[in-house]
Design a protein around this nucleic acid. Structure first.
Lengths: 342, 342
DNA sequence: TTGTACGCGTTATCAG
DNA sequence: CTGATAACGCGTACAA
């Protein structure tokens, strides 16, 4: 027979309670919980036992209030969320992030800044709700974060836009070099009439990979005019592929700036009767699961996505400990993975 | 010339400061912040101005401590995270959830329970870190959450395993009915030698969709023996498709339990020279972006994924307000979407 | 090494 | 309607 309120939650034990049970002071219990070395072994044992028995777990809010730390970091996703989660590259990044965070006491707050970037997200970020933030996006529209940078540590996935100055922290790969490797491979297997489907030219990753493509062709004395821009989605790439074929039906090799986009291009090529790689060879970028799962397994530039996420979280965590010499950038290696498409 | 500590963060203004600036007491400012009606309009104006001017934002930790509420909910993902984020169905769910939460004061904590389900996640959930939790997964292995249910409100995406009893809250679709509609469509277009690639038979969604398939064939007096199980990933479905063709090369229709799996099946069919839908028609489930993007646009059973996520969050929020009559389940409609594959 | 006591920023209960 | 003032649970100088 429950009287009154519908949902009575059992109260959690407090430091006070544990202290009482262990016959010591609150302060001592606190020290044990926080692993202070200045507690005698016997007392540690007694307190630990009491904690165990009462199933005590520290109250996060109280702890935050007293220590002025939240033990939480935010994952800021400026991108449209379906696009974000739909891209296996980001999925891998998130996986790496959570893997690193799992080893720590920190928890992850998911912030989708799609709708009202400036207001709600900002407000949250600057209200001491998190100790630091991870920003993942291909986008350049990150300006609204510039002043957050002076409040809490920020770590970017991918080089941020120029507005951030040289003091920003980020994890990235050398997209130019990666694209050069990929394009060079196309040349190495004898292709000469090359085209490219690029990412958006307002995103660093899009720009850099395009630059790598251009550079390589330039060095080879070939024209780099068969280029169409897309936005890292499969559908946009399919459209780009169609435009490309309309202009140049004689292409024999294409460098596509992401695996996901390559799958879109692949669909169009098949639909129009081109054989891959016989008629047209394709080199993509990412080496995400999409590369293996593609109709024609993709030759692609691999970037260690999960490791990049891991490195981002690790970098932020180091920043949060106050480590004075955390390197500002961590440029990870890319690698050509040869499969069927080129 | 910065002396001393490397990163001096400007302190946030407190209630006290605002009170002083407005010439009132902390209590009054608090009332204004929380929209109490019992404050005179003039004072409200003065305080509001001060808040604006000082750029005041309440401290979440202090508020939580005093109010015994966290204003945060958890998104629990028991699934392996790459699989989770790789599936557009989940992406849509998350989108719906964040959309609803955006309208509220609540924030989302992402909890990936892949590694050590029982310990860390549990600990977090039961430590008053969140006011409630959303659980999204196809899995049945949710037992470790059963006792959490008595501590904080839980809302499931998809009917949870039987261990939870009739009092659990969840949002789902009628998977049996949906599968029946899909299978029936195959019959309606004249297919008679039907097979199915199912989800795992230890997950409600997997079981129910399989049941719908069976029921329909039974009613039609046809055998339902051409069945292979997979695990909702594209690769597992490709393998299942191969097994199916090995056993039965004469199939003319297949009901696949998810879009993502259908893309895997599609690859195998093409590879082995079957035309879709001419040789073999396919009906899938989800109507995720994968359905449109597939090599052959998929005829599929649409479920309102984003709306389901929205409904989940909405249900939880209502639960958190103490609303006594929140319905325990919200079964949303499915619909046959006809495209090219059947 | 251990305990005492104060403060962290809010909410909520009382008087007034 | 407004203002003191006591919690909320914990960290941490300071004292012992």
């Amino acid at each position: 027979m429950t009287t009154g309120t519908r949902q009575t939650r059992p109260a959690q034990p407090t430091l006070e309670l544990v202290a009482e049970a262990a016959g010591v002071s609150r302060a001592t219990v606190s020290r044990v919980v926080n692993g202070s070395t200045k507690v005698s072994p016997e007392i540690v044992a007694v307190v630990t036992a009491a904690i165990e028995r009462l199933n005590y777990v520290p109250n996060r809010a109280a702890r935050s209030l007293a220590s002025r730390q939240t033990q939480a970091v935010a994952l800021v996703v400026p991108e449209d969320i379906t696009r974000f989660f739909g891209d296996p590259y980001f999925a891998a990044i998130v996986q790496g992030i959570t893997r690193r965070l799992d080893e720590s006491q920190y928890i992850l707050n998911l912030l989708v800044a799609s709708s009202d970037p400036s207001h709600k997200t900002m407000r949250y970020l600057r209200s001491g709700n998190v100790d630091g933030a991870l920003v993942v996006s291909h986008h350049t529209r990150d300006e609204f974060l510039t002043d957050i940078e002076s409040l809490i540590p920020l770590v970017f996935g991918g080089r941020p836009s120029v507005n951030f100055g040289p003091n920003t922290y980020y994890v990235d790969v050398d997209n130019v070099a990666g694209a050069q490797t990929g394009t060079q491979h196309l040349l190495d297997i004898g292709r000469r009439r090359l085209g490219s489907i690029t990412g958006p030219i307002d995103m660093p990753a899009g720009i850099d990979r395009f630059t790598g493509f251009q550079k390589t062709l330039e060095q080879a004395g070939l024209p780099a005019d068969a280029v169409e821009h897309a936005d890292f989605t499969a559908v946009s790439a399919a459209a780009a592929m169609r435009r490309l074929l309309e202009r140049r039906s004689d292409l024999d090799g294409i460098f596509v700036a992401s695996d996901l986009m390559a799958t879109g291009a692949l669909d169009v090529l098949r639909e129009q009767g081109y054989a891959v790689p016989d008629d047209i060879a394709i080199v993509a970028f990412d080496d995400s699961p999409a590369a293996i799962g593609a109709a024609v397994p993709l030759t692609t530039i691999s970037q260690p996505s999960a490791e990049m996420g891991f490195a981002m979280a690790d970098m932020l965590l180091r920043l949060l400990t106050g480590d004075p010499d955390v390197p500002h950038r961590n440029i990870m290696p890319t690698q050509l993975i040869q499969r069927a498409s080129a």
